[in-house]
Write a protein that binds this DNA or RNA. Structure first.
Length: 111
DNA sequence: AATGTGACTGACT
DNA sequence: AAGTCAGCCACAT
């Protein structure tokens, strides 16, 4: 199983995974970011789905605040109901439709 | 080789 | 607000 795009050279793949995990680790408490933003920041703007894969299979996922990653609509990960509870614990607010209030909590990496 | 399935996104209705 | 559809990729069947 690989957690990175086919077209990447091994060195790029390592950088991609490193960047993804690094960004996730930087998301401030009470904020969220999106798969697309992470992918773009890592230099592969069309690989938002790969970010999801990388997080899903990341061994050290338990030590990362990966619950602070949602899709652009503010939807939480399917099949992971606990994610919403974790976010609510840090005062992240949800809209009536069950989506994160992105307007208020979206965070983007700087530089 | 072909098709279906996602921790996705954007542009439509 | 909620669906649908087309791109998007790696993987499983």
């Amino acid at each position: 199983m690989r957690d990175y795009p086919d077209k990447m050279l091994p060195a790029q793949a390592l950088a991609f995974q490193r960047d993804v995990l690094n960004i996730v680790s930087q998301i401030p408490r009470g904020h969220v970011t999106t798969y697309g933003i992470i992918a773009a920041w890592a230099g592969w703007p069309t690989h938002s789905r790969m970010v999801g894969r990388t997080l899903r299979y990341a061994p050290e996922a338990a030590s990362l605040p990966c619950h602070r990653v949602v899709n652009k609509q503010g939807r939480t990960a399917p099949g992971w109901s606990r994610q919403q509870a974790l976010l609510k614990e840090e005062n992240v607010t949800f809209k009536a439709n069950g989506h994160v209030d992105m307007q208020r909590h979206l965070w983007e990496p700087l530089l």
